[in-house]
Design a protein around this nucleic acid. Structure first.
Lengths: 136, 136
DNA sequence: TAATCTTTGCAATCGGGTTGCACCAAAAAC
DNA sequence: GTTTTTGGTGCAACCCGATTGCAAAGATTA
């Protein structure tokens, strides 16, 4: 497991106080975090600083963003060696009742054959419905 | 081709002035329309009335909504016999440069095998990148 | 006709995201 | 080592799509 400092060094992002705590928070959470999640966790850090930090992280591929159907963009730390390639995609299942998001790692996604000369940058595959707990 | 009145009758939605013009507009457009699109087209109709009309239409399955990656919810009239089943799904491709949305009807989508007892209601499969025109 | 329910228009609000600006701290140039 | 430059931070304000409270107008029922 890499420390925050190591990750930032590898990804060539200057280490600052805000960046360290934001990255530490993201690393400590199991689930992808929204700006609001981070804001609530880091009460002494300004929202816009967190926001700009996330944008910086995303540009430098420290983290990637996820649209999970909840309406809020979520962020998660890239795994080691992750190039944010849209290859290892997975569906997100968003329960419209309990508002939880599930990552459907087991559902395979075929190659998306785009029309000629279209370039894939990102894919958000969001399925909405009722989870097992709410479907009773 | 059904008239607005016929569609509303079939779907058991009371016919009103606003509903007729909103539905007529949606029927007249090739592309799915956002609230703002409709607002711009129907200058004398109030935004919140259009909004509530869209919500009513959606509940009564006159139209369905689409998240195409543009950030604005779009609406389109259900085809005859459409139950808003998430069967005849297709990907949307959103060009991050020119901000146009493309429907990728030709890209087949396999059955999404959800975990036990999960219920599919809706799917938004949005692929983002550069379209052929912008990928030069 | 009177009472009730629904639709409509207006204004206000909400909430996630974003930006302008001044201040401050670190890095680079002198 | 001091000055200049660059970049990060905090605060407040703004943007914009979506949504709601409320009262007036219209339709429906008793």
């Amino acid at each position: 497991m890499q420390t925050e400092e190591e990750i930032l060094k590898i990804k060539k992002v200057k280490n600052t106080a805000v960046r360290t705590v934001v990255l530490r928070h993201l690393l400590s959470q199991e689930k992808a975090q929204s700006l609001k999640d981070i804001e609530n966790a880091l009460v002494y850090t300004d929202r816009s600083s967190i926001f700009r930090t996330l944008k910086t992280f995303e540009k430098k591929k420290v983290i990637h963003s996820i649209e999970d159907g909840s309406g809020m963009t979520k962020y998660a730390v890239c795994a080691e060696g992750c190039n944010c390639d849209p290859k290892d995609l997975h569906y997100h299942f968003y329960c419209t009742n309990c508002e939880k998001t599930f990552c459907l790692f087991d559902v395979t996604i075929p190659n998306i054959q785009l029309p000629n000369n279209f370039k894939l940058q990102q894919a958000n595959l969001v399925v909405k419905g009722l989870c097992d707990n709410c479907n009773k």
